[in-house]
Amino acid sequence: MVELKVDQDKCLGCGNCVVSCPVNGAISPESAGGHGPKTEEVIMMVENGLVKLFNVDKCTQCGTCPLFCPTDAIYLE
């Protein structure tokens, strides 16, 4: 079973994944605009400079966030 995973050691905290995630955008439209999501209902957010998965069950494994992550810190496996 493929799942969304995060390697915090690689994460730069840039937030590309948060902004690019289409599910995040649907839940919290301001995140697609580049601002931080206003709710913890989203799949992932940057917290204290590192990405953290909040609701991995909402991920449809569309593969968008790994495309935008500069360090392969977020991936499907």
């Binding site: 493929v2 593969g63 790994p66 499907l76």
Partner: peptide, 10 residues
């Protein structure tokens, strides 16, 4: 997982 296969090389 078609997206993962096509887009991220799973």
């Amino acid at each position: 997982p078609i997206n993962a296969i096509e887009r991220t090389g799973v």
